[in-house]
């Protein structure tokens, strides 16, 4: 009975989409897009601006001291969006499978790599999904996850040590006042983290006003005062920029290759 309801529900959903396609034209589709964009944003906006404790037609949130009548829906809608977003994974999967499948089936150069891709993908999927039921698959999963996946990720991450060195070397060579300032600050903060660096100002007293010039104090001040203030200011600009873009998207004022397209 449940299976039947699910199948009928699916069929009804597809039929609804078919009818929607049949009985709408470009103009009405554009109106639908604008409306749904607005309503999607309006829900979250209303949930934010309506004060806690506000009810609707006698319906109150379970915790009126903290929530309004829309707040309990946030989690449920979040769950729905998470699930819908999850279904989109197939788009990427199809692309990867098509790309590597073509290479493999046509014997193009690099087919060995495409084969390796498929073996790794299928192996990890099967082992990941069914390891609870099989000791062999648990072993395979350990080999793939601890032997390959984690070390590969850690290795790519650790390459940053080399790259940060080469980037710093190039940046140190740049002859401009701004680059010099940037590297001087980087140098102070780096030196303050190692004993050899701290030795540079070890001779300064630990008490009194001179203590503020010890390298670890200067580094701490740079990070917690100047850096914090500069990032805060940059953040205000980014926040206003993001607010402007959100407003344009919400009110469908955003024009561009995607939003302005004919439907």
């Amino acid at each position: 009975m449940l299976a039947l309801k699910i199948l009928l529900g699916f069929a009804a959903g597809i039929a609804f989409l078919g009818l929607l396609d049949r009985f709408t034209n470009t103009r009405s589709r554009r109106l639908l897009m604008v409306s749904f964009t607005f309503l999607g944003g309006l829900f979250y906006l209303l949930e934010f601006v309506i004060p806690p404790g506000t009810g609707f037609l006698g319906w109150q949130a379970p915790n009126p001291a903290r929530d309004n009548f829309l707040s309990p829906l946030i989690e449920q809608i979040g769950q729905v969006v998470l699930v819908i977003g999850g279904f989109a994974f197939g788009l990427g999967l199809l692309n990867l499978a098509a790309l590597h499948g073509r290479t493999l089936l046509r014997g193009r150069p690099g087919w060995v790599n495409s084969l390796a891709f498929f073996v790794a993908m299928v192996g990890m999927t099967v082992a990941g999904l069914f390891q609870a039921n099989s000791p062999t698959l648990r072993t395979v999963h350990r080999l793939l996850f601890e032997g390959l996946y984690q070390p590969l990720g850690a290795s790519v991450f650790s390459i940053l040590a080399f790259f940060i060195t080469t980037a710093a070397y190039r940046a140190f060579r740049i002859r401009s006042g701004e680059a010099t300032l940037m590297m001087a600050a980087a140098f102070i903060v780096m030196m303050a983290q190692v004993p050899m660096g701290m030795m540079l100002t070890d001779w300064l007293p630990t008490q009194g006003w001179l203590a503020y010039f010890r390298i670890e104090q200067v580094s701490d001040w740079l990070m917690t005062v100047l850096n914090m203030a500069a990032l805060r200011a940059v953040g205000f600009g980014i926040g206003i920029g993001g607010l402007a873009m959100s407003l344009r998207v919400w009110l469908s004022l955003e024009k561009g290759t995607y939003f302005g397209k004919e439907m």
Partner: peptide, 19 residues
Amino acid sequence: IPFFIAACDYTIIGEEYYA
């Protein structure tokens, strides 16, 4: 941003991104 400044030819900082 510091890493992009060190490694890239041009870096668009902060709000310039939204501009």
